[in-house]
């Protein structure tokens, strides 16, 4: 009985700690004249949502973030897939070293990575450009993608590729007609992972993008700093949306078993 109570209490605490920040955000985004010691806002307003939809600042930043997220997701797939696949074909210490190299941009503190990239990108003329920020976001995203595809191809039955070749398909046909359809789900996951890495990125955007590239996290950061709490909370909720969508998609995918290879 005591054990059951303890488990319920632990679950309740977990639920509270997970949900509380987001409930507060939601209240902040619509609350009006909400001051201490009021537990709930005395009045509600949709003004900040109207401002977000009407104003160019947050909407433009959201559009930039979406472009960067989609681009980063695509690069995580396009570059992560061949790297992960090659790593999966290595054996012994070579695979360990390869995986460690792929892990490096993931494990490095973002500010250290951003500082390093900033120096390089400024010399290449990419500082303060959308392309530069995209490439900077791609660095950790490709690391994640490579590690993810390493796991995918470590269990992928490569005999099915041999079967395809034996039946007359070229390596290119085998890749596009057999391998890609079989890893559709992991590809979507890797795209989502890359998207999320970019979507929530602040240090790389700040240092490489400088002032000109304004993404949603950068704008939310600025709104918090300038004390525009309601608008900041609204922007933060928009930031949350893709993460919640990705979580839902993952749970949905987990409930459906898809055959990856025979």
């Amino acid at each position: 009985m005591t054990g059951r109570v303890a488990r319920l209490a632990a679950l309740g605490l977990l639920g509270l700690s997970a949900a509380a920040p987001f409930v507060l955000l939601a209240l902040w985004s619509v609350g009006r004249d909400w001051f201490y010691p009021a537990v709930l806002p005395p009045r509600f307003t949709a003004q900040s949502w109207r401002d977000l939809l009407a104003g160019e600042r947050l909407l433009g930043a959201t559009a930039t973030s979406l472009i960067l997220g989609a681009g980063t997701g695509a690069l995580a797939c396009v570059a992560g897939l061949p790297v992960g696949r090659s790593l999966a074909r290595l054996r012994g210490w070579r695979r360990h070293v390869g995986a460690a190299l792929a892990f490096l941009p993931v494990a490095a503190p973002p500010i250290a990575l951003a500082t390093g990239l900033q120096f390089s990108f400024l010399r290449l003329g990419l500082g303060g450009t959308l392309a530069g920020v995209l490439l900077a976001h791609a660095v950790p995203a490709i690391g994640y993608g490579s590690l993810y595809f390493l796991g995918v191809f470590a269990v992928f039955d490569s005999r099915i590729e041999e079967e395809s070749r034996s039946l007359g398909a070229t390596p290119r046909q085998t890749f596009f007609h057999v391998v890609v359809p079989l890893i559709r789900r992991p590809l979507a996951d890797a795209f989502g992972l890359g998207f999320l890495v970019s979507w929530s990125q602040v240090p790389l955007t700040l240092l490489v993008g400088g002032g000109p590239v304004r993404t949603l996290p950068i704008e939310v950061f600025a709104l918090v700093q300038s004390g525009q709490d309601r608008l900041a909370a609204t922007g933060a909720l928009v930031l949350l949306a893709p993460a919640i969508a990705a979580l839902a998609a993952t749970r949905l995918a987990a409930s459906r078993t898809e055959v990856m290879a025979v």
Partner: peptide, 16 residues
């Protein structure tokens, strides 16, 4: 793919 030889593995590997 250009040998004109088809090799069938012990377990039939159909494309799912």
């Amino acid at each position: 793919e250009r040998r004109g030889v088809v090799y069938l593995q012990q377990t039939p590997l159909l494309f799912p």
